[in-house]
Design a protein around this nucleic acid. Structure first.
Lengths: 310, 310
DNA sequence: CCCACCCATAACTGCAGGTTATTACCTCAT
DNA sequence: ATGAGGTAATAACCTGCAGTTATGGGTGGG
């Protein structure tokens, strides 16, 4: 019923037609011939079973449906661009100008975009990205192996300069059929500590933050229900009903929004935390590192001024 | 240098391998044979020039790079799913249970997700979506042609029941090379009114809100610099340096974040506005309309409690 | 030790997506 | 009117990628 999803080239073609107002020009921009573009677009319309563009003899213009699909396509393409920027940065060679290490959560949600923005304004700088956990990233920054690290640890390790680039919050999440989903009262920290949870491996910022919170209570913490080394895997396990987990709200935004996961309030403990850029203390930031830092912090400033923008 | 972007199926395959831990099982889930999956993945790795999975004889596990790419892929796939949900809803037949109309801004950024969530929990309801502007959507709701409308007008028209489902803010944006980008002082409303702007067509919520603000000042408003009927087109024009525009911050989030556009502060006028669901007054909401409304407002509640989550 | 499961390779096939060449159409200017 | 210059669609052909089945090489558990 849903049909097969369209391919990225077709979506790009649609956006180009919207921008340029002509199939032929869009084809040229994509480096293909006009008939190829014509066929592609016809194919796309057939697959979606929607009339997307009105072909006039004086150019083509998107239909109302076409405009909507075009906007949605742009979002898909933007994510794809982020992915490609991230992939390019993962391909670390030794001849790159700026080497960056990052915790998983930050790498997943922010770094491709930042790196993409950096490449966009200085296309010739080569940035490489190493994805680890907060502990490792901080250690690499401390040893000077990298130009900049991005961490989500509760405290910035000594010997590092730092600057806050964002904030997030940990949430306790369960599947909708979990007993906690029907609670009216918040969970007490002691109860949370006694409950086996699905957690990340030691060293990850998420786990460190959680343990720091729970050790404040004089309750023997329960053994983990399951240890997984990727936020996505934990998220999938919670959705599948394996048990509760504590995750960054960033990583479960979608699931909370559409009801696949529910947030369980926790009484009295502060689950906010800050995201930091760190670099070796006293080191003069190179041009590109400086630029990346300013991109990361500009984003933060922009967010601070906008009220519930998305 | 960047290489061609990977195709959708390969990204899905990667996420399935991550989830299931085996190429063969992932292949089965996708409805293809195991060798096909093997070849696809090898192809993907060759194109990205990254080792994504460690093949052991007792299953396959993602490498560190693979995990990162997998996470980014999930974001691409999520946007693609939204697109497909929206496309399915655009394909209006006359035998659908719930007909929805929406302004462009809301349709672009929220409705596919909401409709997707609705379909996910009640897969058999058929939802159709008509994308217009706020004025039209409100009128259709008033005439009872649709079960629910989503509008961004400054005021809810009389004769409609409504509920707030979100909020956003209008911003004045310019390209980085525009004179206003270097201003230190905010723009005065009178100056904004005198300046030719790139605007949407009359009837759009964005334009109505803008005009309502500017008519408060006793200055003859300048004629529009350009009238375009899509937010994306306006955005592209501003980026290209055609001139300033006033847009919803939602639609220029990316561009503000990576510096392609700059926000120009405006002195003294309130540019916030509310996003509303509307339906014919007194009409009892049907089950699916009720459900959609609760999805839309739940999202809002979740946002209200989360602090700078994204 | 063998079975069960993992994955890769080989040889073959089909079709999607590209090309060039050509046609049809509309609009505008002469 | 009429030709020029733009638009898009169609036809015929070619290539190669993605799928298939068949097979073989690993490795770990009963």
């Amino acid at each position: 019923m849903g049909g097969t999803p369209p391919d990225f080239e077709s979506l790009l073609l649609l956006t180009l037609v919207a921008e340029l107002g002509s199939l032929g020009q869009a084809a040229e921009r994509m480096g293909i011939s006009q008939p190829a573009a014509s066929k592609r677009l016809a194919m796309l319309e057939r697959r979606l079973r929607l009339a997307l563009v009105d072909r006039g003899s004086r150019g083509s213009v998107l239909t109302t449906e076409g405009k909507a699909v075009c906007q949605w396509s742009e979002r898909v393409l933007a994510e794809m661009e982020s992915l490609m920027a991230g992939v390019a940065a993962l391909r670390a060679d030794r001849d790159d100008d700026l080497r960056v290490a990052s915790s998983m959560t930050l790498a997943e949600h922010f770094l491709p975009r930042w790196i993409g923005a950096l490449r966009q304004r200085s296309p010739d700088v080569r940035v490489s990205l190493k994805v680890t956990n907060s502990e490792q990233a901080a250690a690499m920054a401390g040893r000077g192996e990298i130009g900049m690290g991005f961490i989500e640890a509760p405290a910035v390790p000594p010997g590092l300069s730092s600057r806050q680039v964002g904030a997030d919050r940990l949430v306790v999440v369960v599947a909708p059929n979990h007993p906690w989903a029907r609670r009216r009262l918040p969970v007490e920290p002691a109860e949370l500590a006694r409950t086996p949870l699905i957690v990340r491996e030691p060293g990850s910022g998420t786990r460190e933050t959680l343990e720091r919170i729970l050790t404040g209570i004089d309750v023997e913490p329960a053994r983990p229900l399951m240890v997984l080394d990727a936020n996505a895997a934990i998220r999938a396990a919670v959705v599948a009903g394996v048990g509760p987990a504590v995750l960054s709200v960033i990583t479960v935004r979608e699931e909370l929004a559409d009801g696949r996961l529910l947030e369980v309030p926790v009484a009295g403990v502060e689950l906010h935390r800050r995201l930091h850029a760190v670099w070796p203390k006293g080191r003069r930031l190179t041009g590109s590192a400086q630029e990346l830092l300013s991109i990361a912090s500009r984003r933060r400033r922009a967010r601070a001024t906008s009220v519930r923008e998305s």
